[in-house]
Design a protein around this nucleic acid. Structure first.
Length: 536
DNA sequence: AGTTTCATATGG
DNA sequence: CTCGCCATATGAAACT
């Protein structure tokens, strides 16, 4: 059962039940209180909800205490389908979708997707007489047809389901927030930066600025300015290409250790210091806006707060509520395992059955040198051509020709101007340049080479997330963080073991859904800890 | 003064 | 030989 929804102003809306093939099963129903209607229907028969955009509709439902099990996000799906057809970046919002169906000029994505019927005329770029519910129902039927016409409809349907479920999780995480102890964050800052100042940098930054100036002969300088630091070094006869940390590490000068410490602390102060805390942490929660499908590879992005770049030292402040704990799960060595699965390389899959893929790889082909095996693997996935990894790469190519050919082929396709797809069918965007020459083509090849792996890894993680969400439904446990290959569940202590079991089961489910009976394993590192910083 | 690019950090 | 992939965010520097 599917129920199409069009949200309207003032919390009202219209709904219509559809059959699995998208054809209407009953009349359109206008409701004054959409949240109440969704709540009742969800409790009654838990349909798949069909709407233009989860990001637009669902947050308001959440604020009214309503959660749903499943949905079909029309606009995210449209973006996937357009991309599949090599039309990446074309308008994918409801108005554009409708215009295409009617053979009218397609409006850009700037308009709002859920306009009131009576207001349609205000938006000149949306078809006259635009009815959001009608557009949604018709668009869905159209998408079902297009989904069926893809090379692997089953896989693409899974992608659509996972993308839609991801949008639900993203909205829920943004709503619930990550538990954050402002006082503990303050302790970390005080410990590392010293007392804050109302007007300038904290004590430790001031001291380091002083010490660095002394180390350069007492000239007053600003260590946060790369140009000044380069000049200061050059006055002492040391010419550097940049002030990057790894460059400085190779320089023998008394200012170097001070500068390295300054960089770290200055970064902490400006990006995750007291003003960040004041802006983003409220009532014990850090609330960011997560954007499902925000990255071309299908990874999530965030808007505001830098939720996917939280420095490890600051994770000390992520502490579970009293009587609660975190179950933290991290997929280890996800990308090489994905490569083994998608390439169908039996030999690499054999290594990927092991808990430590690199160790197994080393034993098989690198005389037990794990570091070398890891370097070769990363080099192959990223398209490294030079450096110390070259002999290791040759060994990898000789020993795992099937996996090697898989990434090489993706690279060649990119260099030749072609498009590549993930396992489930997410398609890379076309190159922006008309024709590629030399270094441009090689860069494009590295991008497509990595895309087939990174995008598939994102699909595996998204599938795990969706499966886990379903398993946690109806319990008080909450998904509170998701970072590419890592999830955090905030749970009452007495449910922690159940949650851990659910995470493991979701991981196994994700592997089966994507790759069937492939021998490749996708192990998860699990820890149950009251503080994120203590996770393994 | 406002906007864009560069340099550098963080995360995976 | 921090090199090869995907991002966000900050402040400095350079631009309009």
């Amino acid at each position: 059962m599917i129920v199409a929804v069009a949200a309207e102003e003032g919390g009202a809306g219209r709904v219509q039940p559809l059959g699995d093939d998208g054809t209407p099963l009953g009349p359109v129903e206008a409701v004054d209180d959409l949240a109440a209607a969704v709540r009742a229907r969800e409790a009654a028969d838990a349909p798949r909800w069909l709407w233009a955009s989860t990001a637009q509709v669902y947050p308001r439902l959440l604020r009214q205490g309503v959660r749903v099990g499943r949905c079909h996000d029309l606009e995210l799906t449209e973006a996937l389908l357009l991309g599949y057809d090599g039309r990446w970046g074309e308008p994918h919002r409801l108005g554009a979708l409708r215009a295409r169906r009617l053979g009218l000029p397609v409006p850009p994505d700037t308009g709002t997707a859920t306009v009131e019927p009576g207001q349609a005329a205000l938006f000149e770029d949306i078809p006259a007489g635009f009815d959001p519910l009608e557009a949604t129902v018709d668009g869905y039927a159209d998408q079902l047809t297009r989904l069926a016409a893809t090379d692997h409809p089953g896989r693409f349907r899974l992608l659509v389901a996972a993308e839609s479920a991801g949008a639900l999780v993203a909205a829920e995480m943004g709503h619930d927030g990550l538990p954050w102890r402002a006082d503990v964050h303050g302790e970390v800052l005080l410990d590392l930066l010293g007392e804050p100042s109302a007007v300038g940098p904290p004590r430790r930054i001031v001291e380091l600025t002083e010490a660095i100036s002394q180390a350069f002969g007492g000239v007053r300088l600003h260590p946060e300015s790369p140009a000044e630091i380069l000049r200061a070094f050059s006055r002492e006869g040391i010419v550097l290409p940049s002030t990057r940390a790894w460059v400085l590490k190779g320089v023998d000068h008394p200012a170097v250790p001070l500068l390295l410490e300054f960089k770290e602390l200055y970064r902490l102060w400006t990006a995750h210091g007291w003003s960040w805390r004041a802006q983003w942490v409220h009532d014990g929660r850090f609330k960011a806006e997560y954007i499902a499908g925000g990255v071309v590879s299908g990874r999530w992005a965030t808007r505001g707060g830098g939720a996917l770049q939280i420095p490890k030292v600051v994770r000390r402040a992520v502490i579970a509520d009293d009587g609660w704990t975190f179950v933290v799960a991290d997929a280890s060595q996800l990308e090489p395992r994905v490569l083994a699965a998608v390439a169908g390389d039996g030999r690499l899959a054999e290594a990927a059955r092991s808990g430590d893929l690199y160790e197994a790889l080393a034993a098989d082909a690198f005389a037990g040198d794990r570091a070398k095996a890891k370097l070769a693997m990363l080099g192959a996935m990223y398209g490294q051509t030079g450096g110390a990894a070259v002999p290791a790469l040759a060994a990898l190519q000789a020993r795992f020709p099937v996996a090697w050919e898989y990434v090489e082929r993706a690279a060649r396709t990119g260099e030749g101007g072609g498009l590549v797809r993930s396992w489930l069918g997410r398609t890379c965007p076309p190159s922006r340049a008309e024709s590629l020459s030399g270094e441009q083509a090689r860069a494009r090849g590295r991008f497509t080479r990595n895309f087939v792996i990174q995008a598939t890894a994102a699909e595996w993680a998204l599938t795990l997330l969706a499966a886990l969400r379903t398993r946690l439904a109806g319990t008080p446990a909450r998904l509170v963080f998701f970072q590419h290959d890592e999830v955090l569940v905030h749970t009452p202590l007495d449910l922690a073991e159940d949650v851990a079991a659910s995470v493991r089961a979701a991981g196994e489910q994700a592997g089966r859904l994507l790759f069937g009976d492939s021998p490749v394993r996708f192990p998860l590192e699990l820890s149950t800890v009251p503080c994120y910083a203590d996770a393994a």
